[in-house]
């Protein structure tokens, strides 16, 4: 069985205007819409396409998070994943712990590919994929905008500061997605019904033998400094005059 593991993180929806709690203990989450991390939707879409091309046999959605994460895993199943695994944790487990847990699932599932997002839009860490690749001692191709499977290897185009870089890696390997890899499909109603019957295993960190070590304590959350709203100018001439006066042009 050629398996692809896909990371699915439950995060505050990207459309929500995130606000810091007045006491600085975190951000407001009450009544806030939660979704699949957008980069993980792209990861899942890519895995489904690889399976649909006949280059893999099954797609398994994996997540670490609180019980409610089952909602996002059900959505992943409705999108087309074959089964899902939830490793129950408190919210906010650190990237090294996530990567260790994924490494355990990798040992169990022996995937040919693991696809994660390049970053989770809550912690904005951009770490887990690279850490998993290191623990597993396998190649990584981060920020992928194109993935071609060629037998035992893959060719991946990456979005880098200079432009686009292409690398070749031996499989198995870890890929992380960038925005332009694909456009995720919409979930159809009948698929939501079908997804209810697909297997969703729930386990926890202790059961897979990983400790939830905390090495970075968050001491406080603060709102960012706000920029002052400036002035409106009437036309191009007034704008250029203002910029000239400030020595900006």
């Amino acid at each position: 069985m050629r398996t692809i593991l896909v990371g699915i993180k439950r995060v505050i929806d990207y459309n929500v205007r995130v606000r810091v709690r007045p006491d600085g203990s975190g951000v407001v989450t009450d009544g806030v819409k939660m979704s699949i991390n957008p980069f993980d939707e792209i990861a899942l879409e890519e895995a489904l396409r690889i399976r649909e091309r006949g280059e893999a046999d099954e797609v398994v959605a994996i997540s670490l998070g609180p019980d409610d994460t089952q909602q996002q895993l059900r959505t992943a199943l409705a999108m087309g994943a074959d089964r899902a695994i939830l490793v129950r944790t408190d919210p906010g487990v650190e990237p090294p712990v996530v990567a260790r847990a994924m490494q355990k699932l990798v040992e169990r599932e022996s995937p040919i590919i693991v696809i994660l997002g390049k970053q989770a839009i809550d912690d904005d860490c951009n770490q887990v994929g690279q850490m998993l690749a290191a623990f597993w001692d396998r190649p990584q191709a981060t920020c992928a905008s194109k993935i071609e499977i060629k037998g035992q290897t893959a060719r991946v185009t990456r979005e880098v500061d200079a432009g686009l870089e292409t690398i070749e890696v031996d499989l198995p390997a870890v890929f992380t997605t960038d925005l332009r890899l694909n456009e995720p499909r919409y979930v159809k109603l009948p698929d939501i019904m079908k997804a209810k019957k697909k297997p969703l295993d729930v386990t926890d960190l202790a059961a897979i033998g990983v400790e939830a070590t905390q090495r970075l304590k968050v001491l406080k959350y603060e709102p960012p400094p706000q920029r002052q709203k400036g002035v409106m100018v009437r036309d191009a001439a007034e704008l250029v005059a203002a910029l000239r006066q400030k020595g900006l042009v």
Partner: peptide
Amino acid sequence: QRFRRPVYAGNAIVTVEAA
């Protein structure tokens, strides 16, 4: 041991302390 960094697309700044 202590650093400040942005999270949530810069909507919050956290102070973290490494062990």
